[in-house]
Design a protein around this nucleic acid. Structure first.
Lengths: 712, 712
DNA sequence: CTAGTTATTCTAGAACA
DNA sequence: TGTTCTAGAATAACTAG
């Protein structure tokens, strides 16, 4: 199960080979957030708080982490490895020869270690990481108790570790291998160790693992000199404390420089400072990545919406064109004396239309439309141009003007329009008009009640026709139309309340009109000349691409910064860039939660670098009120760059949400850190001595002989 | 069986009390032999060889074991202590006073440790030795797992030990306490630790236990001397290191990094490298800034467009609603026998409409619309719902179907619809229809020729009315309408070519219709239920804000990097970090021209970090084909992150443009990232040793990897 | 037996938190 | 101050000669 095979499956993330890239964590804060607020971060099952990073690195010889950190830190671009691959083989070969020449061999310890891992059994105690670049001791206790003694003369895990360290293995803090099943961890987190040359399936490389031949310490003395020696020596042999790694690739042009003349002396504090700054840079980098992620999501969403919107717009456009063309035609014909009435309009689409319900009212002439007109060819299909015109939003105006002659409305003579006429039928059940401002409440007749043409049962009506049309419904053709239901809809509501047509109905109606309108066949939907240019989807796509690129660039930045940090590492051993090794975020960060991020300790936004007291602090100014869409809404407190549109800053989210959060630029997570410490140094604890007293002379140790360990 | 216990049996030799003695492993060689022949030394039957004595003693400070060995070594006559007793009390008192004076207390660790021992429970894990001068951890594992976490923030035995050492506790090698029951042992021997001042029942003495305030480290471990010095100091001063060390503050002033000890020596080349990397970082930073700039512009543009679009959409929406409502009403009335013709529809808006051009044709009844209907109040103003329906784009279908009965079109009886009727008038000058597929070319009559109502000069016509309406044009109200021109437009083109209405005309027409439609007064433009959610402008705003933030962050990053570069400057003589002084880019880059940037020498995108000569250059790979809008169109070649929408990648720009672009990790496309790595565990892997040396060297245990001795 | 090497143990150094 | 990882150092335990 835990055989090497599984590596692939569980978390491909790391899987392939480059763990580095894999992680990308560089850019990613994320995982972080996961831990949540209380900052009880590393509480493992037992609740023990655990730090995450390698506390220190380069102590003693092997001082220069550069030798190993490249691999250690997953963040480093894998690229390094690729190039290394060849060299590695070469070096390994050389090392092997050299070793053999000297009658040496692969250090026993290494062999033993390898043998542990080679065996497929024991994988529940020790096994390779998924990427085969490190190994994991799953249960130290058990490992020490059962496995260690099998190859070593002891059963102390500590001793084992000492050996590991001796041979240049280092503990990996952020367990890269997430293949860890929850069940596997007992009370302690598994330990992961790696060595540049310790790789699964690469036994040749083991030749490169050597114990520090010559601990500069030999001279027993000390440090000052040691350091120097170190620095210079790294080129080939000696420095090599532990590994031959003659030119460990991590340091490219690394100069062989030998003398101090090539050395620069800089205060450690300075280096410290650099490291800190880099760290901040990295944090910010991650933050930016998160924002970009969000942005990408947002952009994509906008794109979707725009697309839908545009589609709808096109429909409307064509609808309007069709309608207007139709009406214009109708009107024209009526002027021409060929007016026909509404029913005629639809006549040709209907078998027999001649209904006779309506009576001509007192109004002027009828406009009649000759079905003839229906011949499209007659008219150029040039559609009516649409235009963005003032929207008639004011409900009271047009209607009232038109309808209520009493309205101050128009200066026209419309007074003379035919007088209001109330349909007698539905008057009774007419509902009170919602328009109180209007006096009369004309009702709509509800004759053509049901779709089934209750009123016009036998003769094929327009409705019938329309219904039949529905049968031949095609995508481009008129959509199916349930006119009857449309009308009933319109009238049924007590006749007084014209219900809105259903979308389908509406569309069908438009289709009908289109059918009746000559010349509209061509492009009823051509956008009007004045139509605003639609935001082209291409733009969104471009945005998306740019975001992709930004993302990529960010990742690169992050990795570069990481690299820088690593190079500074030697000076500051730990190499712990907190939060970096927290799993990969970039690959698919999932939903980036800015809030969480901000609240996490990974976010130390804007610690002023340059000035001691650069207080401009993003932290103070960031408020995250994400809308449901997962977009970020950030209220920025800082001064927006000129030209920035401060709109939207008033969304009602208090800026001070995060007050106090960022104390000094650091974003001060969460305070309550220690809250739950186990500590509880009870009063008793505080004054332990009380009970102590007693007899002192109990025999010393002499008493009992030697207890041997037994296991069993 | 293989329990360590048996060891006892085997060689009790060691038993007695001397610890060294204890283990006697010395005598152990035996076991070795046991293994027999192969001289596989390391293999002890399972027996773990164990050394007995404290391996080393005086390391670091506290260097001189003399301080503690008296007690440590059980062999030393107890007598010494007696004499000390008094002094001890004295010292303890002093120490206490001193500590209290300083507001200090017994070190927490010591307190905790004491509390462990005070408690009567847990004696199976930790307890005092018989003589009360040391304590024993019986089961380290269990102790670590259960007890440690109770008072400490971890569960690592090693950490506990570190603390012990820190406070001057030392492990006693030979377990003196024979109280060990056979059952108590797990697999490891218990550990015994002691501290001169850690005695059962002597809490006062705890005051004497102090952490080494001032790690003599300053002198950085010069062992030799230390030892000596120490030796002498014994009794009192002694260990000062850890002891109360009166004022060891001796070294307080540590340091200000005057000495070299505070300096780090690093190769200049290293610094050079750092500088280069920083430079690259900066360049990339600028690049990113440029992209963001572009992005902002783009976003803003999108916003504008969306805004306009949305506006237009609203207009259309309302237009359609108005029209449809109008038509529905019209139709209904006609059904009701109150049909009125088109002219009537507009009648009430017109002074005198009664034109008489048109003659009623053969079609059925007329629909007449009672102007009455114009009274809005009558109808609920609930507008028709709009819906996005299939657009009738197919010119041939609806029209032909409707018009040409010969068309296969409908299954209906429409044959009987009135025959096409061509308007006589403009037949002559009818232009050839653009619709070739349509035979007949109905023309539109051009009666109402000029807006000035050439044909209806004297009587106020609809046109007049409309014109008058124009006067009262208000933003929300119907826009001014030049119906005459609209119509003329529609007809003038030789009568055959209905010209598209001008936007104005169209809108006006809509206004008219609205005016004629009852109940539309309210919200003719309410978006239909099915309308896709409009991309809210807020989103753009948010995007903008996010961009602002990104920009800010970028600026910060840039400035941080700058700062870093500056700090490194001093180290790099040249001081010139090319490209750095190029003016501020971030602030307001103005129109960022990616192209220029890329082509400039400021851009060294992807210079490999690690490798000296990595020439891969983003520049080569990025092509900027900005659209007119100043947006970037970047075709990215790399694999888009999962979830990325690759759309738009086909815009005609070759993808391979950028091949080879990101070679080393920087943008590392994808490539087969893992391609190689997965490491098939080859046979080689499985039997590492074989391939390794292949030679004699395999000597010892090494020879066969893993020969685990099997027990049982 | 000696010297060289490796292993084991205990303790200290260092960096952080 | 505590926690962790790593190194130092002494010495044990071997190995080879």
């Amino acid at each position: 199960m835990y055989s090497w095979n599984d590596s692939g499956g569980l978390n491909n993330v790391t899987s392939s080979y480059a763990e580095g890239p894999v992680y990308d964590a560089n850019s990613f804060p994320a995982n972080v957030a996961a831990q949540g607020t209380t900052q009880q971060p590393l509480v493992f099952s037992n609740q023990l708080v655990r730090r995450n990073q390698n506390n220190q690195v380069a102590r003693g010889h092997f001082t220069n982490p550069s030798e190993w950190q490249d691999t250690n830190n997953p963040i480093i671009p894998q690229s390094d490895f690729d190039e290394d691959e060849e060299q590695l083989e070469q070096k390994a070969l050389e090392a092997k020869k050299e070793a053999q020449r000297k009658r040496k061999q692969i250090p026993p310890f290494v062999q033993k270690l390898s043998s542990f891992l080679d065996e497929s059994n024991n994988t529940d105690l020790i096994r390779w990481s998924d990427d085969g670049r490190s190994f994991i001791v799953l249960d130290e206790d058990e490992f020490a108790k059962t496995l260690i003694p099998e190859l070593f003369k002891h059963n102390n895990y500590a001793s084992f570790v000492r050996q590991l360290n001796m041979y240049g293995f280092h503990k990996k803090v952020g367990l890269s291998d997430n293949s860890m099943r929850a069940s596997e961890k007992k009370s302690k987190t598994p330990s992961e160790y790696w060595n540049k040359y310790f790789r699964r399936g690469r036994p040749e490389l083991l030749w490169l693992i050597q114990k520090p031949k010559n601990p500069p310490s030999t001279a027993k003395r000390k440090r000052g000199e040691d350091d120097k020696g170190k620095g210079a020596a790294d080129s080939d042999e000696e420095g090599k404390k532990y590994g031959p790694d003659g030119e460990n690739s991590s340091r490219p042009q690394l100069p062989s420089l030998t003398g101090t003349q090539d050395m620069a002396l800089i205060p450690r504090s300075e280096i410290q400072g650099l490291r800190q700054e880099l760290q901040q840079l990295q944090n910010q980098q991650r933050f930016i990545s998160g924002v970009i992620q969000n942005f990408r999501r947002s952009n994509d969403q906008l794109r979707q919406q725009t697309m839908a919107f545009q589609k709808m717009h096109e429909r409307h456009e064509s609808s309007i064109n069709a309608i207007l063309t139709f009406l214009a035609t109708f009107y024209n014909r009526s002027l021409e004396g060929q007016g026909q009435n509404m029913q005629d309009m639809f006549a040709h689409v209907m078998p027999q239309t001649n209904q006779t319900h309506g009576s001509v009212v007192d109004v002027g002439e009828d406009f009649q439309m000759d079905p003839q007109q229906a011949q499209p060819g007659r008219y150029t299909k040039k559609p009516l141009a649409l235009l963005p015109a003032p929207v008639i939003k004011d409900a009271t105006f047009p209607p009232s003007r038109v309808i209520n002659s009493s309205r101050p409305a128009l200066n026209t003579q419309q007074k003379r329009t035919s007088q209001p006429r109330v349909f007698s039928q539905n008057q009774g059940n007419a509902q009170p008009s919602r328009f109180t401002e209007v006096s009369a409440s004309p009702t709509i007749k509800d004759e053509v009640a049901t779709p089934d043409s209750t009123n016009l049962p036998e003769t094929p009506t327009m409705i019938d026709v329309l219904n039949s049309v529905n049968a031949s419904n095609t995508p481009t053709g008129p959509a199916e139309f349930d006119f009857s239901s449309a009308l009933s809809n319109y009238q049924n509501a007590d006749g007084n309340t014209p219900l809105p047509l259903t979308p389908q109905q509406r569309d069908d109606m438009l289709s009908l009109m289109v059918a009746n309108t000559p010349g509209n066949g061509d492009n009823p939907l051509s956008a009007s000349a004045t139509a605003p240019q639609l935001p082209s989807l291409e733009q969104f796509d471009n945005s998306q691409e740019q975001l992709d690129m930004l993302q990529k660039l960010q990742e690169q930045q992050a990795s570069k910064v990481q690299h820088l940090a690593d190079r500074l590492q030697p000076l500051s051993p730990t190499g712990s860039i907190p939060g970096l090794e927290m799993g990969n975020f970039v690959g698919d960060p999932g939903q980036f939660d800015l809030n969480s991020f901000i609240n996490s300790d990974d976010y130390f936004p804007d610690q002023g670098i340059g000035d001691t007291a650069d207080t401009t602090n993003i932290g103070d100014s960031l408020a995250d009120h994400s809308n449901g869409n997962g977009n970020l809404n950030l209220d920025l407190n800082w001064d927006l760059p000129s030209g920035t549109n401060p709109r939207n800053l008033d969304q009602g989210y208090s800026n001070q949400t995060f007050d106090n959060t960022f104390e000094d630029g650091l974003l001060m997570p969460s305070a309550a850190d220690g809250g739950g410490r186990v500590e509880s140094v009870s009063s008793e604890a505080t004054s332990p001595a009380n009970t102590l007293g007693g007899d002192e002379d109990l025999g010393r140790e002499a008493a009992s002989p030697r207890k041997r360990l037994r296991r069993g």
